[in-house]
Amino acid sequence: MNPILFWAREVLALLFFLFFLVFGLSGLLGLFRFPDPWSRLQASSVTSTTSVFSLLTALLLIAPSWAMASRILIIMAFFMISSPTGSHIIARFLWFSGLPHWMPEEKDKG
């Protein structure tokens, strides 16, 4: 492989691994910082979707063969369907349970 392409691929993969770490840790932090299930669901969606998607993208970039890359692509496609479905089921249950969502204080509003 062309050395420039090789390095570009490695640097991009590293960037996406960094995203994985940052979003994963932020999501975990959000689970503790947010006060109610509605907003915690937002934090967990960052953890589950953005960080895992970044991880899979990084793995796709450094996949050693087309066979491996195609498997990762299929996993990404399934993940894009299953992850929102899980969040939706929890949110729908919250909605039907009638639990009110958290309203931040006026000074916290943007």
Partner: peptide, 8 residues
Amino acid sequence: ILGGPCRP
């Protein structure tokens, strides 16, 4: 998460 504003 780090303290920014939101309006659910």
